[in-house]
Write a protein that binds this DNA or RNA. Structure first.
Lengths: 219, 219, 219, 219
DNA sequence: TATGAATGAGTTTTCATTCAT
DNA sequence: AATGAATGAAAACTCATTCAT
């Protein structure tokens, strides 16, 4: 029997172990959530134990995604804490840290791409609302940091962020190729799918921010 | 017993009946694919018959999605056939027809949002490749129309299109709220999720195209 | 693969095969319902096939019990079709056939003894109501046959029957001994549990009918 | 942590607290035994603690049922301690106290109705035998009180009692309606299920005792 | 071609019980 | 004695797909 998690710290650790196991398994096959049994085994726990920490399998998934969103928005707020004054430098600064975040959380966009089909699956309305509410609050808080940093009208920052993330997620879903395609990408007929996600995203975001800020400047 | 489809026209018609049934059922609950039995029943066919026209359930899904992409790209090519000369008018023209297309194909973005989790699920490599290849070719063709219309360097149009679609899909996934959230959207804490998709998308695309074309102008 | 049940008769037969398998398994361990998997295996079918014929496991159980009640009430109606005129002969006639019925349906009282804990388990209200309603109608019909045969006031027969069955079921539950008790029944301390069910039931019913009919005679 | 039960009195008290919690929970949903966790919580104890006082969950159930049988037989012995001399008065006297006992122990017949499916479930042979033996001895003792009171041949009283209880339990199981039926009982098609248990039981027992004692008188 | 009966792999979740603390 | 974290067996049910008719 696994050593017991007696105090709150132990329990948080165990909860995290389950999340970590789920994340790792998910990365191995990022088009479907691992089964509860697989997660338990990977975490070195019995199946029932998983259900002491999460009420349903989907709660694990949402827990994972929420944690990623939390650290993403934290990263964003940090990015805009002491930003460069000039626009090109600012953009470069943002992209550098934003892309690094995505690199360091390879499960993030993959999980996010499954959220649409999973969120309403087996979560209580209450859980779903709590998740969406947290996301909203994180968005607003990071948006406010951007407003301050760039002296934008209130609410503009969260709009920029939402559109930035929309572009990110949308490009990911176009460019993340299933294994069998990835293998053929050298074929010239697939050229338009070829650009690697990082540079494509950087280029697209540059275009978007340029347009968005020049409109702001005009307006 | 349903009348037999003997010639090619009959068969295509039956195939379309299956797709239509699947589309309609999917729209009723757009977070999961309808079951094969439901589709068969809605199409007025027996379960086994569905499998004479599609090898797997996912093939139906991909068939639906491919049809939507085909007509989307067709629409895009038409949009740029005789475009207004001035940029603001061009953008307004594009947005008008693009948004109308999305309005008229309510299943499209919903299906697309599920593609990530379904595509690798139960499709042969061959089917997957065929789908992606068709998409790529459609993108290239429509992109070329844009290149011609706007006198852009070759390939620029398809890049613009891909990013446009990325923004579209990404915003959809942020703003399409599950039922239980939709009901609470009046609550001010959910304000940032409130903007309706159409106007948000129009604003975001304006910003993006403005930036993209001004860069193009510079470069 | 099992031969297919194509017409209604085949299907009824298959349904009965499932019921028969369930009955047989239940008799082997009459204190719990066999699992769906066990029933399927015993019937020579796949698990899923069972669910083509019954929506839930409990529906099998109720189907079995309803069939037994149906034939019980049929038997009762026959008993009173041409009954002896004299009371002692009538009673002897009734008991002979009633006890024979119970002998020939060893699962009946055992199933019935589990009904209380199972009926509300996993049946829709609708199914439950249908079951109870059928029972009621059977009771009324058989009761009417008794009314006619014994020239009793309307409704008296069904009351007699209900009380007769109450005595039957109640005695069964007292006298049907678990295996480990049955083995020790020779021990004189268990003497009061010893009487065999058949003779005890016969004696008890004689007493009851005597009292019931003498009251009727007075009233 | 709950205060420790060190002496025998404390322990008995704790044991009773568990039984009381189980009884209360069972009454809230009398078609299945409450879970061990629920019982523990309702008793204000930890799950593990329950198992210091009862080896299995079923032992709690049997403990509850045994306590009820004990007080039932006690009540019966009291009833016949100074009974009225005349039969009608005697019967009225018996019924009054017997029915009052049932009223005051609403869990009793409900528990009893589940005994058949639970008794062999998870009890050791030894526990089962102890339970049955106690029941037998209580029956014999109360039966002897009846023999004395009514000057019946030895053993006759316990037979009367057993049959009385059989009728009681059997009628209960016919007339205690699941919620969804209870709601529809006004419908005339359910008329035969309508009589309330108390009056139906009184009438049935009057008939039975009349018959039983008149046979005794003859014999 | 069309049918729909049969298949059976696959997964979540519950809960009685144990035992380390 | 008391706790409650951990265990893992158990079971119902779904549904994509096949194939005999």
């Amino acid at each position: 029997m696994m050593q017991r998690a007696l105090d709150a710290a132990d329990k948080a650790e165990r909860r995290n172990a389950i999340l970590a196991a789920a994340r790792q398994l998910f990365l191995q096959d990022p088009h479907k959530l691992p089964s509860a049994a697989q997660i338990a085994e990977a975490a070195g726990l019995a199946k029932g134990t998983v259900y002491l920490y999460f009420r349903t399998k989907e709660e694990i998934f949402v827990g994972l995604l929420a944690a990623d969103f939390r650290s993403l928005f934290e990263t964003v707020a940090e990015i805009f804490h002491n930003p460069p004054a000039e626009l090109p430098a600012l953009l470069a600064h943002f992209l550098e840290h934003y892309l690094r975040y995505l690199d360091q959380h390879p499960e993030f966009l993959r999980l996010d791409a499954m959220a649409y089909s999973v969120l309403e699956q087996n979560l209580s309305d209450e859980q779903l609302r709590a998740f969406k509410l947290e996301l909203t609050q994180l968005l607003v808080a990071s948006g406010a940091a951007i407003d301050r940093a760039l002296a934008l009208p209130e609410g503009r920052g969260s709009t920029l962020l939402m559109r930035t993330y929309a572009l990110t997620r949308g490009l990911w879903q176009s460019l993340d190729q299933p294994r069998c395609i990835a293998a053929m990408l050298d074929d010239p007929i697939f050229a338009p799918l070829r650009p690697d996600f990082r540079s494509e995203l950087a280029a697209a975001l540059r275009e978007y921010w340029l347009g968005a800020l020049s409109i702001a400047a005009q307006g």
